[in-house]
């Protein structure tokens, strides 16, 4: 929201910005603006180039791909590569596993972090800030440090090669960073709502579920979008916990695909593009929440 409104307010011609303009006028304005747009267009093209090339290449034959030159648009939009990707590897299975894990982990992390954050933000108890401090510290423990004992734990539970190691832990707190984000948001809501509801005799669970939670939907969306992207791209955890080809996720499947089809670029491009599509669609739909989330995350403090 902030990002959208600020630039327009800057453009209004106040005396202050007028004086700024005087100071800047080393070169004519249009020259400076020209340079600005040229560099922006050039740089954004460089950043987007890998995608553009990848999408084009997913329709090309291998011979067409290795042709020199920047041919972004394929000769024809043939779907052969995509069909081949489905035939050669259990692509549909990986896709399903990824989606299953990402959806359930996201629901768990979102609800669970909101639930716990409500406790931290609204309810008072002796030692509550101590618990919260402890939660904050865990943000800085790299998850790689816990990978080995968790691997042993999950293998003893018989959870290896099942989606559960990648889902269940998120239902218990949903990650300290998400709790922190949601707590900030709950803190911003008027406490009178809780007091009034208590006087009316509502139970704490009901106050949370029916009064406070609906008010946090903007924050919940941010947490959900970021978490979904995080889980969808997660690599090390599924690589360690899901070593079976049929139980693994898209990124891990794709990585085995990379070593198997080393020279077969057309099938690699098609496979990777199919892995990119869901996340790009989600991004397109949720972009404004992501931008808002940056402001919400409290980096500005």
């Amino acid at each position: 929201m902030l990002l959208q409104t600020k630039p327009s307010s800057e453009s209004t011609d106040t005396t202050a910005s007028g004086s700024r303009r005087i100071k800047r006028s080393g070169k004519p304005r249009f020259v400076r603006r020209g340079f600005l747009y040229l560099s922006l267009i050039g740089l954004s093209f460089l950043f987007a180039l890998p995608f553009l090339w990848q999408f084009g290449a997913s329709f090309k034959t291998n011979a067409e791909i290795i042709q020199p030159g920047l041919n972004l648009i394929p000769e024809s939009f043939r779907l052969d590569n995509f069909r081949r990707a489905f035939e050669e590897v259990p692509f549909d299975l990986w896709f399903y596993n990824s989606l299953f894990i990402a959806v359930l982990a996201t629901i768990g992390a979102t609800l669970s972090s909101a639930f716990c954050a409500y406790g931290f933000a609204v309810l008072r108890a002796r030692g509550s800030s101590l618990w919260f401090g402890l939660a904050l510290v865990t943000i800085f423990i790299p998850f790689e440090a816990l990978l080995i004992p968790e691997f042993i734990l999950f293998s003893k539970l018989g959870w290896l090669n099942t989606p559960w190691p990648l889902i269940i832990p998120w239902w218990f707190g949903g990650g300290a960073f998400n709790i922190f984000l949601m707590r900030q948001f709950f803190k911003g809501l008027p406490h009178e709502l809780v007091d009034a509801a208590r006087i009316d005799g509502a139970s704490e669970v009901r106050i949370f579920w029916q009064i406070m939670l609906p008010l946090t939907i903007p924050a919940l969306t941010v947490v959900a979008v970021f978490h979904f992207i995080y889980i969808w791209n997660d690599f090390l955890r599924p690589l360690v916990y899901l070593q079976d080809t049929t139980s693994t996720t898209l990124p891990v499947g794709l990585s085995s695909f990379v070593s198997r089809f080393r020279r077969d670029w057309s099938i690699l491009m098609a496979g990777s593009v199919m892995a990119l599509v869901p996340i790009i669609v989600l991004f397109a739909v949720a972009q404004r929440f992501i931008v808002r989330g940056i402001n919400l995350s409290g980096v500005k403090r």
Binding site: G119, E150, P169
Partner: peptide, 28 residues
Amino acid sequence: REARWFYFFIAPWLIGFIFFGLWPIAAS
């Protein structure tokens, strides 16, 4: 009563912290 509810609400995190945080740290 409020303190009890506090622990009720942070219970998921607390359980997760013990099983997927504290215990792995000690074990490793």
